[in-house]
Design a binder for these strands. Structure first.
Lengths: 338, 338
DNA sequence: TTGTATGCGTTATCAT
DNA sequence: ATGATAACGCATACAA
C-alpha cells in the first residue's frame, strides 16, 4: 500500500504539501502541485479514506433505510437518492429494514459509530416517537412517510390533497358507491388518504358502509389485496368504484373482479396510487396518482446534506412535491347510476 | 464524543483492557470485563469505526453493484445479500451502475481507498476483460452474470441447462415453430440461452428462420419487448411459441398478442425467465424458469467473505444453484399442428 | 491478567 | 508557499 509519505518523498516535498494539493488548497504553487500529481500518478497512490474519516470526523456515507426493495416505488426513490449522492460524492448505504423498528434503530446507530453522516428514512411509522431521540443528535430526513410534529425535515407529496382529487374525480364520473382498500400499517400516508376519502364522502353526503373499508397487509401484497377485494365485491350493495392506496392493490382488485366475471372499468372502476411501471403493462391501464419518486429521492439528499453542512439549516423544512392524477383506462362512469 | 480513554478512566483500567473487553478477548478477567461493560453503559460509549478501520485496515463494508434497482430480479438478489451481510455484521453499499462500465470502475475503486473490503457484481458483461485487473488485487464475486475464464468466484444458475429444459418442454407440448426474444446486451446468460435454444432446435431438426430472433433492449424494457413481439408476430409463418429471456418481455409479448386479437396460450404460447412476482398477478399466469435469487445473494456474500477472511480460499469457485421450471398457464399445445 | 507505548494514514496548526 | 509535528481513536506488541 502506497501512503502519502511515499508520495511526498517521490515528489520531493513534505506530506503537508501533498495533502494540501490533494485537497485543492489554493496555497500551493502550481508548479509544486504538478510535481505532486505526477508522483501520485507514477506511484498509483489512492488516499486512505479510513484515515481521512478519522481525522475529519466524517464518513462521506449516508444511510437510506427502506422497508423493502421489492416495491418498485421504493426502488425508484432509492435510485434518485443514489443519483444525487453520486453527484455530491457521497456513498449510500441502502438498508433493508423489513419494516421492523429495531432493525431501523440498529442501522441508525451506525451514525453514532461514525460509519455514516446522516440518514434518509423511507418508511417511518407515524407513531415512531423514539425517532425524536435520534433526530436530535443525528442528521435525519424523512421521505414519503413522516412522524408528525417531529423536528426533522421531510419530503413527500400532499397525500391528503391528492386523495381528495382522486375521489372527487370518481364522484365527477358519476360514482356514489365508492369503497376503499387501505393497508394495515402505521404510515401517515395511509391515515391521510383515509381521512381525505372520508371527508369527500361526507362533504358529498355519500353513504360509507362499515364493510366498504378493507385492509390489505402492511406491504400492500398482491394476495392480501385479492382477499380484501373479494370481501368488498361480496358486499351488498356492491360498490361501483374502489379507491386503493397502492397500484399493486388495484391490480389485485382487477384480478379478483375478473375472477367474478366483472369487467373493469365496465362493471367496476378501480384506481391505484404511486404510478409504478406496471400500471401500463396490462390492460386496463391503471388510473392512479403519480408521485415524483426520483425527485423525492434527490430532494431528500439535498435536504440531508444541507443539514450536515450548514450549522443553522432549517430544522424541519417540510417539502411537498407535486403529484399528478393519471387518468387512464381503469376508471369510467358507472353503468347503472341507480 | 466519548472515547475509549474515558471508558478506561471510568472503569479504572487501561485502554488496552477496554479494547480487549470490547473485542471479546478471552484474556480478560470476567470481573474486570463486567466493570468495563458497566462503564461503557453509563457513559453510552460507542466505538468509533473509522478509527478501528484505520487500525485494522478493513471497513466491514461490501459493495453490491447492480445495473438498476427497478428490475425485481435484482431487488430480490440484493435483499438476499443484505440479509446475509446483516447476519455477518457487514454493511452493504448498494450501487446503481446503470450498466455503465466506467461507473462500475468508479465504485470498485472504493476498495482501493479502503472504503470497502470486497464487491459483488450483479451485471458483468462477458467481455469485461478489464475486470481481471481488479479481481487480482481486490476481492470480487460475480453473481448471475460472469466473465468466462476469470479467476474470480461466481454464483449463478445453469442458464444453458435451464433453457434446454424450457425449449424441450415446448417441443414436448407439440410446438415446432418456436421463436425467441433475446436482449441487446453483453450478458453471458443471454448468450448461453441463445446457444441452448439453437442447440435444441438443431437437435430436433427444427427450422429457425433468421427473422425469428428479435432483440429487446439491454434492460429488457417492456416497450422494447412489445416492439420485438410485434415484429415477430408479423412473420410468416407465424411462430406458435415464443421463448423470452425475461418475464417482463414475456408480459410484453402477451400484451402485443392481445392487441392483435391473439389469445395466450390458445393462439400463442409464451414463456419467460426469472419468475418475478408479477408472473402470477395477471392471467395467463406465466410459464417461466424460477431462479433462487435470494439464495444467490446469500451465497455470494458467503463466497466473498470466504475470500476476504481465508488467505487461500478457492480463487474461482463457480457455484451453480438449482433452477426450476414453472409450468403455468401461458404455455399449452399449439392449436393446429400443421 | 493487565498496562505502556507505538503506529495506522491523514489533516491541520503553527512555524518558518 | 512550505515543512515539522501533533492529534484523530483504536488495536496490539511487548513488558510487567
Amino acid at each position: 500500500m502506497v501512503t502519502i509519505e511515499q508520495v511526498a518523498r517521490q515528489a520531493g516535498v513534505s506530506v503537508a504539501t501533498v495533502s494540501r494539493t490533494l485537497n485543492n488548497s489554493p496555497a500551493v504553487r502550481p508548479a509544486t502541485a504538478r510535481q505532486v500529481r505526477q508522483a501520485v500518478e507514477t506511484l498509483g497512490y489512492v488516499p486512505n479514506q479510513s484515515a481521512r474519516n478519522l481525522r475529519r470526523n466524517e464518513s462521506q456515507v449516508i444511510l437510506a433505510l427502506a422497508p423493502n426493495f421489492s416495491n418498485p416505488y421504493y426502488s425508484r426513490i432509492l435510485t434518485g437518492i443514489g443519483d444525487r449522492a453520486w453527484e455530491l460524492e457521497y456513498s449510500v448505504l441502502v438498508c433493508n429494514t423489513l419494516g421492523h423498528a429495531n432493525s431501523e434503530r440498529r442501522f441508525l446507530k451506525m451514525m453514532e459509530s461514525h460509519q455514516a453522516d446522516g440518514a434518509i428514512l423511507l418508511g417511518c411509522h407515524w407513531d415512531y416517537s423514539w425517532l425524536a431521540r435520534f433526530a436530535q443528535r443525528s442528521h435525519i430526513v424523512q421521505c414519503c412517510e413522516y412522524v408528525p410534529d417531529l423536528d426533522c425535515p421531510s419530503v413527500a407529496i400532499d397525500n391528503y390533497a391528492a386523495t381528495r382529487e382522486m375521489v372527487a374525480y370518481l364522484r365527477q364520473l358519476g360514482h356514489s358507491r365508492i369503497a376503499m382498500i387501505g393497508a394495515d400499517n402505521q404510515y401517515i400516508s395511509t391515515r391521510l388518504r383515509r381521512q381525505a376519502y372520508l371527508d369527500v364522502m361526507a362533504q358529498e353526503a355519500l353513504e360509507v358502509p362499515e364493510n366498504w373499508y378493507r385492509l390489505a397487509d402492511a406491504d400492500y401484497s398482491f394476495a392480501s389485496g385479492q382477499e380484501a377485494a373479494r370481501a368488498l365485491l361480496a358486499a351488498v350493495p356492491r360498490p361501483t368504484a374502489i379507491f386503493c392506496v397502492s397500484d399493486i392493490l388495484a391490480l389485485s382488485v382487477i384480478s379478483a373482479a375478473q375472477e367474478l366475471g366483472l369487467e373493469v372499468p365496465g362493471d367496476l372502476t378501480v384506481t391505484g396510487f404511486d404510478d409504478v411501471d406496471y400500471t401500463t403493462m396490462v390492460h386496463p391501464y391503471l388510473t392512479t396518482v403519480a408521485q415524483p419518486c426520483h425527485e423525492m429521492g434527490r430532494r431528500s439528499v439535498d435536504l440531508l446534506l444541507d443539514g450536515i453542512q450548514n450549522e443553522q439549516a432549517a430544522l424541519s423544512a417540510c417539502a411537498f412535491l407535486p403529484h399528478r392524477l393519471m387518468k387512464r383506462e381503469s376508471a369510467a362512469p358507472p353503468k347503472n347510476t341507480i
